[in-house]
Amino acid sequence: MSPPPTAAAGSGPAAGLEATRDALAASGYLADDSAALVSHLAQQLGKPVLVEGPAGVGKTELAKALSRATGRELIRLQCYEGLDEAKALYEWNYRKQLLRIQAEAGTGPEGEPAGGEVMEDIFGEEFLLTRPLLAAIASEAPVVLLIDEIDKTDQEFEAMLLEVLSDFQISIPELGVVEAQSMPIVLLTSNNSRELTEALKRRCLYLWLDYPAIDREVEIVRLHVPDLDAGLARRLVEVVGMVRELDLKKPPSIAESIDWARALLLLGADQIDSETFNRTMSIIVKHRTDLDLVAERVGMRLPAAGRNDGTS
């Protein structure tokens, strides 16, 4: 809490915020208000961000865009069940250590040439295999660290993360404490498949990403598929919105609406009628049971092929 926030601060923070939003937009990510604000706060406060939301709303993409926007390297740790320290933090390179011991033993013909020295020797940084978390902490240049799908790991792993997230340091018993060279931007994503611990949440800023509003999604689609006709893009997003309202096993993500837009462009479709929809719907719906439901609920409501414009 060092800079006194006075009336003069009115322009400063706002400008920083706008800059963040613009930088994100320039790297191909249209952030909404809260996403832009939280990314801005994350950089200013040096706090990790916990991003939650349904699958496919661009949680991972936000991290990538941040890394592009800030020109930092992205280090990604993909979480899965059974992920342990050896895969996430660091590991000793046993083979190299063994070779070293054997080499040392070879040089000293008179028996034991100070085993303590070797011992100290083989636990040096040289024998350390860095894994994503250590790599992010030890990196000279500032990085963006993405811990993806944290909810897939077990609670023990979360507890281990606490040290990294609050103090940006890692203790290696044989080596001491490795402290961060530069402040990384840390993003954790979760699909909410289990409740995360309070301790972890306490250390993070929280951002809930939801499916974007229609206008924003139209912008996103147009950004990625600029050749698509504006009216068609809007229609497409509206249809995707209709599909998302159904109770599906897997609602279509933003990436899938973009894919669909690309497909429509390739096919040269100039409107979405029920025929085009039925032919291309497998791009946005990926379950057989979902397909039936969507065909019935959405496909029927679209105008038949040949007629002009939709009155849905």
Binding site: M1, P3, P5, A9, G10, S11, P13, A14, G16, L17, D33, S34, L37, V38, H40, L41, Q44, L45, L205, Y206, L207
Partner: peptide, 18 residues
């Protein structure tokens, strides 16, 4: 301290995020 206080929305978002 990072957001303009005059903007209700941003003020609220900043508090909510933390």
């Amino acid at each position: 301290e990072q957001v303009p206080w005059s903007d209700r929305l941003q003020f609220r978002e900043a508090l909510a995020a933390t």
